[in-house]
């Protein structure tokens, strides 16, 4: 289990740098995606847009919005609304949201699991 050291607790990170935060990441399967745009309309953070020009593809595929100058900082926090809404099961949560240092999630590990029938 991750224990925060005193140094980590005292640090004042900048949560707009990828060194200090790991934002969520979802991947869109271009083979299964129909380009219906439901995920774009329901994303709570407005983090998804339709990719206007995919080379070699006629249909539009969604993609995550890049927020700041740092390309690894996305608005996604892996809430899973898009995966639950997708009619074609084309969206997969690749990575969860986790900051480093002070706001770090301590008792959760990055692996994702569906509700299990114990």
């Amino acid at each position: 289990m991750a224990n925060l050291s005193i140094l980590d607790k005292a640090k004042i990170p900048n949560y707009f740098r990828s060194k200090h935060v790991r934002t969520g990441l979802v991947i869109f399967d271009p083979a299964l995606c129909t380009g219906c745009g439901i995920c774009v309309s329901i994303c709570p953070a407005g983090a998804i847009t339709m990719n206007s020009d995919t080379p070699g593809e006629r249909k539009k595929i969604p993609e995550l919005v890049q927020l700041f100058h740092d390309k690894d900082i996305l608005a996604c926090m892996a809430c899973g609304d898009c995966t639950a809404a997708c009619p074609g099961d084309a969206i997969l949560i690749k990575r969860g949201y986790n900051t480093k240092y002070y706001f770090k999630k301590i008792s959760q590990v990055p692996d994702f699991a569906f509700p299990r029938k114990y």
Binding site: I38, I42, G80, Q108, V109, F112, A113, F114
Partner: peptide
């Protein structure tokens, strides 16, 4: 609007 309820994956919890 639309059918947005459904099961999703969540981070594994250390208990």
């Amino acid at each position: 609007r639309g059918d947005y309820d459904g099961e999703i994956g969540r981070e594994v919890q250390l208990v």
